[in-house]
Each structure stands twice: as structure tokens, then as C-alpha cells.
Design a protein around this nucleic acid. Structure first.
Lengths: 319, 319
DNA sequence: ACTTGCTATGAAACGCGTTTCATCGTCTAA
DNA sequence: TTAGACGATGAAACGCGTTTCATAGCAAGT
């Protein structure tokens, strides 16, 4: 492998000059530039990026922490991140965590070890104070509803939309409203729970523990929800579903359980995925791709900001 | 930032010894090991991986070239790759290409520049001879049906399954069979076409140009297929669909076009995705995750191999 | 007593490009 | 004419860890 030194010798210039040519620095005479370029061609030289990274102290690599690769929600965010990364000359290193903290830790370690210039956390289990300890090594940005001066964040108004959806169902006459979540202790679960309780209190509705269905994220999970639902004495007449995947599953499988949608159960999904459009599911549109783009912007930016994105209730035919 | 040199000074040993401690080399006395470990703790030292990479000449990073992030087919392959990577201490750098050659090129460049130890090509537009020129820089493995001593490959018997599915439909009484593909000039398109022609010839069936529907990959694309289909004088009575996404879309939208499945049109999907199971689509199961794992294994292996995976026709209710 | 062989340790070379600093010539504004 | 600006160029320092090689002590085998 020829290196910059060989090149310099061959072209009869100093390594500095070669480096200048490689980096398009203006202060190089045409004569020398041409000599260097010829040497590059002749030898088939190419830079050793590891040396560049060492020297420059950065890599143009951004780590992306996300739990799953096969869920449309994260895929959409990832597309946003990736598009923007492409545009800004960054590459992405993937850390699919399956919500295991050690795997999240790996990304943080690489940040510390200068292998990553920054980290985007799409969802996490690592406690906030642990993350905070790593901001000294590089920017960390979060996809979650949080105001912080340690991290930039991107989020939507989860309370707001959750509340709006609940009220919408209420207004449509529903009094037994349930909802699904994925993780009981996830970043948004508590907010949802509180909002739910407030809603019930406001309308003087009783709280029913069984109306919160956990573990609903994938299409397949809808079967579980349905089974649980059928076991209840008084079933909810409406469900706020945290994922269009689950909503789609409910829609598809409902018939097999003797339920019609929306007559027996109304459902509102989340994310406005293609499947929601195809099945005409009422859902909430979240600009996930734009949010991904914003995350990438933020991780490259020096100042901290907390950006809220607007979301929209899309009325279709399942309420 | 403290470095290995500071550490050496602080611990009163040579940098070599510090390096030995860091790398768990056996030839270090306990006394010195402890001194070094204390120094590490005191200073909060952490390695600069860029220096390690430069020195070792490798990075433990594998590049993954794939066209789309939001398609279940590639997501599934990616999960396999990722799981195995995790197990083998490798990290993944993502190159979503949208089938643009320059983007594929980027990954190859990084291989050449020693930023990647190897590249997995899940699908591509770059011509084979271009790829071949890069194997000198590191292993490149392909997810496609090809026997080569330049690359390791992982694939399924596309002719075989395509043929089997066609015969299956024939045997079920279908004589007007169409099929969908994504790219007219994609890696598998030609094989499919040939197989299709051979099938027609074998059974003395006429060829109808309009029975090949192009551009079908995503759920949404099914609308297009349906529209084209409705315009035909004699519609096919069965469709071989290259993606369960499209098959699902066809299934969902068929009613709106006045078609019942399988009575008016029988369909066979591909990939056996969750949605296929939910909708009870007849499809072909492909062990994509295992294939992803194999790809990662291959890219780390020194010898070339071409592995074929078995696929299965899953009979459900759309034929 | 003597050769092997293993443990332990460090100096120095190596991997490779970037960047600071100093130098020198030339040109321009004063 | 002269100070200051600007273009061009290279030596050397810098970023940092790994690995080879040489050395030395010490124990086991002959």
C-alpha cells in the first residue's frame, strides 16, 4: 500500500503538499498539484481513513440507537436520519438494542472512544443520568418529549394528541375507552397513563385496570390484545392503539373474534403507516421522517434545542 | 485527554506494558497490571479507537448495502446480519442506496480506505465487474443467486420456486397467470422471465406481455397493479407476486375493484411476512433472517462459498 | 555446567495523514 | 522605498496504540 510519504517522494514534494492536494487546499501551485495527481493515479493511492480520523479527531460517523429494525415506526425515523446523513456527508452506525441496556452502552462507549461523532437515541432503557455522563464525549440527541439543556430533543406532544384522541372518542359517544402501549415503563407510558387518568376524572368515568393493554407493538401482538379483550366482562367500545401495526392487526383479526369495527370496537391507530391508509384506519399522523431529519441536524449542531413537531388526527373509517 | 503515554508515565511502566494490560496480554506481572489499572481508573482513560484501527489495520465494521430501509424483506435480512454481527463483535455501517450506484460506490470506497473490513451487498445496481475490482480491498458478499470464486454468496433457488409456484397454479386450473416484479432489469428479473417463458412453452400457453407487472414492491404499489390489471381484456386469473406487501395490498384493495380473491384472482406472495399470515395469504417462505446471518458469517470468513437456502410454499387461502 | 525455553519488560519502529510554524519570494498599498 | 499582505512550501510535531525485537532473569531439562 502506498502512502502519502511515497507519494511525496514520487512527486518530489513534501507530504504537506500532498496532503494539501488531497484536501483541496488552495495554496498549491498547479505544477505541483499535477505532479501529485499523477503520482496518485500511477500508484492507485487511496487514503487510509483511519489515519485521517485519528488525525482529525473525528469520523463523520453517527451512531443510531434504536430498539428494532423491523418496525415501521423506527424504519421511518431511520429513513429521515439516513437521508439527512447522506446530504451532510455523514455515515450511520447502527445499534439495534432490543431494549437491552448493554447494547445501548456499546454505542456510548464508541462515542467515548472517538469512533462516533455523536449519537442519536431513538428509544432507550438507559437512565438519563447515565446518558448525561456521556455528553462530554460528544453530542447525544433524543427522540423523546423532554426539555433539557444537556441534549437536543425532537418530539411530539404526546399528552396533547393522546388527550385529543380520547376526547374525540368521548365525543363520538364512547365511555369505555381502552388503550394499548408497548412498554409499561417506557418513556411515554407514564405520560399516557396520567393523561388517561386526567381524562377519566374530567368526565367522571371509572378507571378500569384492564383497559390498558401492554406489549402491543407488532401486527402479531393484536391477537393478544383481542384475546385479553374478549375475556373482559365489559369490553371497551373504543381503543387507542399505539401503533398502526397493532391497529391493522385488530382490524384484520376482529372478525374472527366476532367483532365488527367500528361498531363493536372503534380504534385509533398511530403513525399513519401505509397499512393504515390501505385499511382506512383512523390514525394519528406523525412526521417521523422529518423528525429523523431533525435528529441528524441536531446531532451535528453545536447548540441544544428542543423541537416539537405537529401531529394530526386522520379521520378514516374505524371510529 | 489522557493517552497511553500518560498512563505509562503515571504507572511507571512502558507504553508497551500499558498496551499489554489493555489487551489482556498474559505477560504482565500482577504488580504492574495493578498499577496500570489504577492509573486507568484515576485518569478515566479510554482508548482512542481510531488509533487502534490505524494500528491494527482493521475496524470491525462491516458495510451493508441495501436499497431500502422500510421494506420488510430487507429489514428481515438486516436483522439476521445484525444479530450475527452483535454475536461476533462487529458493528454495521448502513448504506441505503435507493438503487443509486453512487451510494453503493460510497461503501466500496470506504472498504478501500480501510474504514470497513468487508461489505455485504443485499441488492445492487453496480455491475459485477466493478465489484470484482474491489475484492482486493476486502471481502464482499452478495445476497444473490450466483456462483463465483470472487465473492461468497447466499441465495435461494429462484427458478425453482418460481417454477414450482407456476406449476402449482397450473395444477389448480389456472391458464392465465401473471407475475409482478420490482425492477425490470433487477438481478432476478431475467431468471424469472426465462422461467416464465419456459413454463408457458411447456404447457403450450400463449405469452402475454401485459402479464408482467413492473414496479411492485410496496403495499401501495398494489393499486397500480390493480389498475393495470383492470384495463386488460383478458385478465390473469392468478398472480405470482414478488412481495407479500404487494400481495397484501392486492388482497385489501381487490374488493374495491370488484374482485374477489381467490375466485377472480388467485395470488401467491413472497417472503411470508407477518401480514401474509394475518391475511392468510398463500406465500413462499424464505428464511431471510438466517440468510442475513450467513452473510455476516461469510463476510468474516476467509474462504469463498455459495450457500443455497431452502424455501417453502405456504398454502393458505388466496389460491 | 549448559542449553532451552518461558516470563517479563521496554525501546523503537510502524501504521498514516493533518496541522502548526517558520521561511521565502512577490506583490500591493502607502 | 517600505511595511504588510498573500501565495507557496516543507520540516516537524501531533494524534495514539500495536507490535517487533532485543534483553534479562530464572527455571527446567540434559
Amino acid at each position: 500500500m502506498t502512502n502519502i510519504k511515497d507519494l511525496a517522494k514520487r512527486a518530489g514534494v513534501s507530504v504537506t503538499t500532498v496532503s494539501r492536494v488531497l484536501n483541496h487546499h488552495p495554496y498549491v501551485s498547479d505544477a505541483k498539484r499535477i505532479k501529485v495527481e499523477r503520482a496518485i493515479e500511477e500508484t492507485g493511492y487511496s487514503q487510509n481513513m483511519n489515519a485521517v480520523h485519528l488525525s482529525k479527531g473525528k469520523t463523520n460517523v453517527i451512531g443510531v440507537i434504536l430498539p428494532f429494525l423491523d418496525h415501521p415506526y423506527f424504519a421511518q425515523v431511520l429513513i429521515g436520519i439516513s437521508d439527512k446523513a447522506q446530504a451532510k456527508g455523514q455515515t450511520l452506525m447502527l445499534f439495534p438494542t432490543n431494549y437491552e441496556q448493554e447494547k445501548e452502552q456499546e454505542a456510548l462507549l464508541m462515542l467515548r472512544q472517538k469512533q462516533l461523532d455523536g449519537v442519536i437515541v431513538c428509544s432507550r432503557v438507559t437512565p438519563l443520568h447515565v446518558l448525561e455522563a456521556y455528553v462530554q464525549y460528544g453530542p447525544i440527541v433524543l427522540l423523546e418529549q423532554r426539555h433539557s439543556d444537556k441534549f437536543s430533543t425532537v418530539f411530539v406532544d404526546h399528552q396533547g394528541i393522546f388527550n385529543r384522541a380520547l376526547e374525540y372518542l368521548y365525543q363520538k359517544g364512547h365511555r369505555n375507552i381502552g388503550y394499548t402501549i408497548y412498554r409499561r415503563h417506557g418513556t411515554h407510558a407514564k405520560v399516557r397513563e396520567e393523561t388517561y387518568h386526567a381524562f377519566l376524572a374530567r368526565h367522571d368515568l371509572p378507571f378500569n385496570q384492564d383497559y390498558c393493554f401492554e406489549g402491543a407493538l407488532y401486527l402479531e401482538d393484536s391477537m393478544d390484545v383481542l384475546r385479553k379483550l374478549m375475556k373482559l366482562k365489559t369490553s371497551p367500545t373504543a381503543l387507542l392503539v399505539t401503533s398502526d401495526q397493532v391497529a391493522a392487526g385488530l382490524f384484520i383479526h376482529a372478525k374472527a373474534f366476532g367483532l365488527t369495527i367500528p361498531e363493536d370496537v372503534a380504534i385509533i391507530g398511530l403513525n399513519d403507516e401505509p397499512i393504515a391508509k390501505a385499511l382506512k384506519l383512523t390514525t394519528v399522523h406523525i412526521p417521523l421522517k422529518s423528525m429523523g431529519e431533525a435528529l441528524l441536524d441536531q446531532v451535528l449542531s453545536t447548540h441544544k434545542e428542543n423541537i416539537q413537531f405537529d401531529i394530526t388526527l386522520i379521520e378514516r373509517q374505524t371510529v
